[in-house]
């Protein structure tokens, strides 16, 4: 009898602890969102999104910064996607998982995924900016981010291909199709939603990055004229306003709000896409 009472008491205690933790984490998430909205919504306007920053960002808007961010993310994706998707196809379709090329590539990407972003910044500065002579430029920042995005792009694309049922490949082979044809006509269309979800996650990761861009794409907040110009990313703008510009809090809030809304949209659509695709896949084909 005493034992049962003790168990009931422990169960209640555990339940209470779990609920309290979950409530606290949810509250902190809402607290952060609420703070950003409260601090930023008054400063937010169409003009803020399109104007150039004035007075070190205290006045004006974030037009050129949005353009620079878009350029950096585009450079990163344009250089990372071909590499990442080719690697994913090789890993999923051509090399056995346990073979040495498969193991080496996967190990290398796994290590790459763990590298802290500031170390990517050091590498990008030493390799792209100094050694290859790109200086502080959008190109250098974008290429640095490309290295950073590779692991996540490869792993999402590989997972997408692997979950296409084997009978697609077998039927293709039975019809005498080349593997190239099977790949492009059957496997890629089937894995497309997973690839798009991975792509969106990559965009989100790239747009959120600051530390890797500090010494590669630089601080210049003018409208960039070419990819070799320095351009300030939105995340870096928030950092600069809050740390180096006294009185920059209002535009910093508004910029943070813009960035968070963008990322929530991108990440939510990636999640929904992946989820819808998985649900479709559970239906036996």
């Amino acid at each position: 009898m005493r034992h049962a009472a003790k168990n009931r008491w422990r169960d209640r205690w555990l339940r209470w602890l779990v609920y309290a933790t979950v409530a606290m984490i949810s509250c902190v998430f809402l607290w952060i969102l609420f703070d950003l909205v409260r601090g930023g919504v008054a400063h937010l306007s169409w003009g803020f999104l399109t104007d150039s920053p004035r007075d070190a960002g205290r006045a004006g808007g974030i037009g050129p910064i949005l353009v620079s961010t878009l350029l950096i993310v585009s450079v990163a994706l344009a250089s990372a996607l071909p590499l990442a998707w080719s690697t994913a196809i090789l890993l999923a379709e051509f090399v056995p998982t346990a073979s040495w090329p498969g193991r080496v590539i996967r190990f290398s990407l796994q290590v790459l995924a763990s590298v802290p972003s500031i170390v990517f910044g050091l590498f990008g500065n030493a390799f792209f900016s100094v050694y290859l002579g790109m200086g502080f430029s959008i190109l250098s920042g974008g290429l640095t981010l490309a290295c950073m995005l590779l692991p996540i792009l490869v792993s999402t694309a590989e997972a997408g291909l692997r979950s296409v049922p084997a009978h697609y490949r077998l039927s293709g082979a039975a019809l005498g199709l080349s593997r190239m044809a099977v790949l492009f006509q059957l496997l890629l269309p089937a894995a497309l939603p997973a690839w798009v979800a991975g792509l969106l996650l990559g965009i989100g990761r790239a747009a959120a990055e600051t530390a890797a861009l500090l010494f590669t794409s630089g601080y210049v907040d003018r409208m960039p004229e070419s990819l070799l110009d320095s351009g300030r990313a939105l995340a870096l703008h928030i950092f600069d306003l809050s740390m180096n510009v006294p009185g920059g809090d209002a535009p910093a809030y508004a910029s943070a709000l813009v960035l968070v809304i963008l990322l929530l949209l991108i990440n939510t659509s990636a999640l929904l896409l992946a989820q819808a695709w998985q649900r479709k896949r559970i239906v036996p084909s």
């Binding site: 952060i32 950003l36 959120a208 600051t210 530390a211 995340a235 928030i238 943070a256 990322l263 929530l264």
Partner: peptide, 14 residues
């Protein structure tokens, strides 16, 4: 998952 997607600079700013 959304919390994980918030950039570190925004956490720092908050």
């Amino acid at each position: 998952e959304l919390l994980a997607g918030i950039p570190s600079v925004v956490f720092g700013f908050w």
